[in-house]
Design a protein around this nucleic acid. Structure first.
Lengths: 200, 200
DNA sequence: TTGTTGCGAAACTGACCCGTATCGAAATTA
DNA sequence: TAATTTCGATACGGGTCAGTTTCGCAACAA
């Protein structure tokens, strides 16, 4: 991506291998995606999985949390495009993207971590929220606010509460719903259960 | 509790100390309540916290999971009494008991575990669900079914979906709501956001 | 070519933990 | 009193892992 013009002069010596760096991040995400919790995640396992010496990891990250922070930050899935026609359609689109992301083992395990380990790794969670959660929350907030402005939704509803209900219902299903995949019309059913109570 | 009549003849030798047993369970719940995950929970830490030799633990439980299963099973909080007058009041009562239980650090951490470690400790989770979760789900299911029968609620709503929405919203707040305690009227606000869409 | 830095592999120290065994003391039955 | 079982403490062998160091080789700049 960058051209041959080093903004700062390249230091002497062998440059750090980008390939190794990517392999380390991939290995980290792989292990997390297989269900390894942050506490169980060991640098040695990551190094071995990445085919890399431990030195190469410690040269880049001073500890496990820093590495995981960087690894999770690479997981930004794109936000879904919203049609912007009706509140119902946009909410279904947003929730359905949560559903399909929950179907991928990596995203699924990252969501698990966000739910379970947020108390113990606050720095990690802060970063993860800024990168992955907040943009989605903002999108949903916009949809609801637009619905209120356009008169589709009542003006006395609590925006944040409505968001919590929608997200909470989907999260509930990803954790305790049927093990073999969530039904395709789940997002639609959630929205249609809540929306009549919010509609003007 | 039991009188001096041993149903089976007491075996010779020093009897097992009930005090030690309770101390072990307490120490286990303490550590879990402090945020220690199941994987990090070590028998040595439990023994040390309980002021007990490791032998005394291994004499009673053959592994960590057995011990945690027994410890969690002692946590059965009583179900709230339902007035049975209106669906709204009963749902608020049920959700509010979730809210207040989430305020206690022990119950809170147990809920965390139920959310995060259910994949890795299925036996533990099965037991925990039977003891703690399913009775509450059944109570909520009854309230909603009664509401449908009485005509308070529409007959075409999905009972399980309504439950998922209510529980999910409360769980969402316990995980990501304000850190310093949930607002007292939270249960009411959740119910009042959903109920208009379900009412007949 | 020389000096510098990164590479993977391996060894190392120092924790922590598991599950078992052993100890002397205490509590109980026969 | 003798036999039995539990008690807490401690030690053990075996394992995993963190983080550091050392090695010989590779890749780069000057």
């Amino acid at each position: 991506m960058t051209i041959q013009e080093p903004a700062t002069a390249r230091p002497a010596g062998r440059p750090r291998s980008e390939k190794a760096e990517k392999a380390i991040i991939e290995a980290t995400l792989d292990l997390i995606g297989e269900g390894t919790g942050i506490a169980e995640l060991s640098i040695e396992a990551i190094a071995s999985r990445a085919g890399v010496g431990k030195t190469t990891i410690y040269r880049r990250w001073s500890n496990k949390e820093d590495l995981v922070v960087d690894a999770l930050a690479t997981l930004q899935a794109p936000l879904p495009r919203l049609a912007g026609v009706s509140v119902r359609d946009d909410l279904i689109t947003l929730l359905d993207s949560m559903r399909s992301e929950a179907g991928q083992s990596r995203t699924r395990c990252v969501m698990n971590i966000a739910i379970s380990e947020s108390d113990r790794y606050p720095r990690l969670m802060e970063r993860f929220f800024n990168v992955a959660v907040e943009p989605r929350r903002q999108a949903m907030r916009d949809v609801i606010r637009r619905g209120i402005a356009s008169g589709e939704l009542r003006s006395d509803i609590e925006v944040e509460m409505s968001m919590a209900i929608l997200s909470g219902a989907m999260i509930w299903h990803t954790k305790w719903g049927p093990a073999n995949g969530l039904p395709a019309d789940l997002a639609e059913r959630i929205v249609d259960h809540l929306l009549p109570g919010l509609a003007a």
